[in-house]
């Protein structure tokens, strides 16, 4: 069985982001970029399935500028087998991403897609569900545990208030939550091997999909900064300010 893992290149989660001077976007020039953390978890899960003998090949796909090839190679170093790079200089919206992935799934005849539940840049949390809709496949979103048996999958999902267990049939889409696994660090030999793995590059204009954005970003701003107040000396003073000064208890 082949598994497809889409990965997104985003600003590294440790970087404090800055809005650009035109207030049109978050500055990405000269900023450290990394694989979206939820996508790393997706790659890790796919590699574990392959190590368990349940998956034969892991295809990594990423959409974006030239830089995303580095992200695809990071996924290779973790255990991805080959890559597809859909070249788009501009931002690609989730619905367009889902349409592109749908065509790849059909062309590659994959039965399983594992992907991050959301990217930490636009925080949309949409693409997996949209892809499931377009393929008319079941979806197992926000997975914290999956068990693959034959042609079906048991999944534990993180939901508000607790956990939920579903049983879904393959082919299906899984989106990963934080606690699904802890991604490995790539070893040096695997990083070296990753350089030789194949990446096919396709221009977004050649996919035949209408990739025009539906959302117009009018402006991007930093939120109002919360300013700290003061220190209190002891419990009595704390109770006093909460009761009498701000009246919240």
């Amino acid at each position: 069985m082949k598994v497809l893992v889409p990965v997104k290149r985003v600003i590294d989660y440790n970087v404090k982001i800055r809005v650009n001077s035109e207030k049109s976007a978050v500055e990405t020039n000269n900023v450290k970029m990394s694989m979206n953390p939820f996508d790393e978890i997706a790659v890790e899960e796919a590699v574990r399935l392959k190590e368990a003998g349940l998956v034969d090949e892991i295809i990594i796909v990423s959409i974006g500028n030239k830089g995303v090839q580095e992200t695809i190679r990071t996924a290779f170093a973790m255990g991805g087998d080959r890559g597809i790079h859909i070249f788009n200089e501009n931002n690609t919206e989730p619905l367009v991403v889902a349409k592109i992935l749908k065509d790849i799934v059909i062309n590659e005849k994959t039965d399983l897609v594992i992907m991050g539940k959301q990217a930490i840049d636009d925080d949309a949390n949409q693409t997996g569900q949209m892809l499931a809709a377009l393929l008319d496949w079941p979806q197992g979103t926000f997975a914290s545990k999956i068990e693959l048996n034959n042609k079906e999958l048991n999944i534990i999902r993180e939901i508000d208030g607790g956990l939920e267990t579903l049983n879904i049939k393959l082919p299906c889409i899984i989106t990963t939550d934080l606690r699904l696994n802890e991604p490995r660090y790539a070893s040096l030999p695997n990083i070296m091997k990753a350089k030789k793995k194949e990446i096919i590059e396709i221009l977004i204009a050649d996919t035949g999909i209408d990739f025009k954005n539906r959302l117009e970003v009018l402006k991007v701003e930093e939120p109002p900064v919360r300013v700290g107040g003061r220190k209190v000396e002891n419990v009595d003073e704390l109770i006093n300010v909460l009761k009498n000064e701000v009246g919240v208890i």
Binding site: I11, D121, L215, E216, L218, V220, P223
Partner: peptide, 16 residues
């Protein structure tokens, strides 16, 4: 809507 975990706010117009 918030982006980057609320570290920026984007004003967005939908064409749909």
């Amino acid at each position: 809507r918030p982006i980057y975990a609320g570290n920026a706010l984007a004003t967005i117009k939908s064409l749909d």
